[in-house]
C-alpha cells in the first residue's frame, strides 16, 4: 500500500497548479467535453502568463457549474443562473481582477438569460465561457433553450418543437465585444481564443460546443463521446467574421465556428472613471 501511495505521489500532472487535484477524478461522464474546456482554459492561463492571484472564476449550477470546484483559483459556486450577476459584483468591487464566468447553456442562457443580456449591454469586463451541450444534463436530460428542433429529450419524447436560441447572435445584438464559437475537438484554436478573450477589455463570450454522451447522445442515438467528436470533425466549418444571424445549429446540421465579433466599446468600469 505504501509503495502504491508513493507511486501516486510521483505522478503529477503539469496542470496541478491550476487544478484541485484532491477533488479529481471529477464527476463528468466518460466522453464528456467539459473536461476539455477546462484543459483549454488551464492551458490558456498558463500560456498567457496571467497572475493566478488576479483571476476569479464564477460558476452557476449544472454539469459545467462544477468547474469552479475543480479549478484552484478564487472560485465561487453560485445559485442557478446568477453567475453573471455575482461576477458583476466582483468586477465592480475590485476592477483589478480578471473575472471569468464558466457555466453551461442552461444556466447562462435560459435561467440567467436576463443577466446575460444586461451584462452584455453594460459591457462589463469579463469572459463568459458557455459550454453548450444542447440539454440540461445534470437534472436528467430535459429540453433546454439550445436543444435543436426535432431533437429528443426526456421531456419531449416526440422531438423538440421549440426553435433553439442562437447564442452568438444574442451576444452580438446585446453588445458583446468578443464572440467566438469552437467545439471541444478544436482544442488549440479554443485555447488561442481564450487567450485573446482574456486579453480583451469588455464582455467576451466564447461558446464551446461539447458532447454529452449520457443524455443528448444517448436519447438521440448518436453514439458515445468519440462518435460526437468524429461528427464535429466532419461537420464543422471555420468562417471568421461570419454574420451571427447565420449561426443557427440544426439537429445534426453543419456547425459554423470561428471568431465572429471583435470590436471596441468602453466597458462599464471605464465609464465609471
Amino acid at each position: 500500500m505504501e509503495t502504491l501511495k508513493t507511486k501516486k505521489m510521483k505522478e503529477v500532472h503539469p496542470m496541478e497548479d491550476v487544478l484541485r487535484m484532491n477533488r479529481i477524478p471529477h464527476i463528468w461522464c466518460p466522453g464528456c467535453g467539459i473536461g476539455l474546456a477546462v484543459t483549454a482554459f488551464a492551458a490558456a492561463l498558463e500560456k498567457a502568463k496571467i497572475d493566478l492571484n488576479k483571476v476569479a472564476i464564477v460558476s452557476g449550477i449544472g454539469c459545467t457549474g462544477r468547474v469552479a470546484g475543480y479549478i484552484k483559483l478564487d472560485s465561487f459556486h453560485t445559485t442557478h443562473g446568477r453567475a453573471i450577476a455575482f461576477a458583476t459584483g466582483i468586477k465592480v468591487a475590485n476592477p483589478d481582477l480578471k473575472v471569468v464566468v464558466f457555466s453551461g447553456d442552461g444556466d447562462l442562457i435560459s435561467i440567467g438569460g436576463n443577466h446575460f443580456i444586461h451584462a452584455a449591454r453594460r459591457n462589463i469586463d469579463m469572459l463568459v465561457v458557455c459550454v453548450n451541450n444542447f440539454i440540461y444534463a445534470m437534472t436528467g436530460g430535459q429540453v433546454a433553450p439550445t436543444t435543436p428542433l426535432a431533437a429528443y429529450a426526456t421531456t419531449c419524447p416526440f422531438g423538440s418543437v421549440e426553435p433553439p436560441i442562437n447564442i452568438p447572435y444574442l451576444a452580438d445584438s446585446s453588445g458583446a465585444v468578443y464572440v467566438a464559437r469552437w467545439t471541444t475537438l478544436h482544442i488549440r484554436r479554443l485555447t488561442n481564443s481564450f487567450i485573446e478573450a482574456l486579453d480583451k477589455k469588455g464582455f467576451s463570450v466564447v461558446e464551446v460546443i461539447s458532447p454529452c454522451p449520457q443524455y443528448y447522445s444517448r436519447i438521440n442515438r448518436l453514439g458515445d463521446g468519440l462518435d460526437m467528436m468524429k461528427f464535429y470533425h466532419d461537420n464543422t466549418e471555420i468562417r471568421h467574421g461570419e454574420d451571427t444571424k447565420n449561426l443557427d445549429i440544426g439537429f445534426q446540421g453543419k456547425i459554423i465556428m470561428g471568431k465572429f465579433i471583435d470590436r471596441e466599446r468602453p466597458s462599464y468600469t471605464e465609464r465609471f472613471d
Binding site: 503539469p14 477524478p25 473536461g35 476539455l36 484543459t39 492551458a43 485555447t191
Partner: peptide
Amino acid sequence: CEMLCPEFAIY
C-alpha cells in the same frame, strides 16, 4: 493527447 484528455490523466 494531453490537450484532448478530459480527465487530466495523461501528460
